[in-house]
Amino acid sequence: MGKKTLIVLLMVAMAAVLYPLYESYQGSEQLTELGQYYADNGVQDTGAANLVTSVVVTYRGLDTLGEVTILFLAASVISFFLSFKKEDRKESREIRNITEILTTASQVLIPMIYMLGVYIFVNGHLTPGGGFQGGAVIASGTLLMFLSNPDFKLSHKVIHYVESTSGVVFVLIGVLGIFMAGGFLDNRILGLGEVNTLFSAGAIPVIYTFLGLKVGTELSNVLGIFVESQNEQ
């Protein structure tokens, strides 16, 4: 078979491309120059104890803006593709029995999951986590809501307003950085404060809060579209 040989040849080529990387890997003993700069000056520059947060939000903030844009585009294209007319909606659909355990437990768990998500993105500059993780946790709370209540529907108005407001605020904070500090998305527009306290690291907690809200509503919206598309004939 020609196709099988082609696949094997491609795999061998890929392995040959990857092998030098594997062979030259020696398990480094010290940081690279760039990593060493972040380790030495990151806390003084940004005031955030979590260096990954300071890299994501401040040093490479423009990348994060692009990432949020890609996520927004993906969500828009999915809702464009999976939308359907009202006539195509099924009149009735068989709903699987939902157990008592799931409904009762979800009433207790959903507020706690949302609170955990908010905690994760508010404390992004102190502990592991941040806007993306908190947003994903909020979206999984919404998923539990969909599973425990088949008639639940997301309010499109709320999603729309929360999502677009937080996106605009994110860019506005970035533009403020040009006028009041060193450049786009500079976090020193607010005082850096004392490291390791909640109100520190300048604008990082504010940016991460809005980022978390944006990512959470976007992922919830994608889940909502997938659930809604089950009703199409």
């Binding site: 979590n50 990954v52 947060t53 994760i120 592991p128 986590g129 941040g130 993306f132 993780q133 994903a136 946790v137 979206a139 999984s140 998923l143 992922l219 994608v222 889940l223 997938f226 659930v227 598309s229 089950q230 199409e232």
Partner: peptide
């Protein structure tokens, strides 16, 4: 730990859920 949290919540929870929604739609 940051990457681990992201992978656990996005990679294993949300992706699996979306796969199952698609499969359910295709099955019916």
């Amino acid at each position: 730990p940051d990457v681990a949290m992201t992978e656990a919540s996005i990679g294993s929870a949300l992706t699996t859920a979306i796969f199952f929604f698609t499969l359910n739609k295709i099955r019916q």
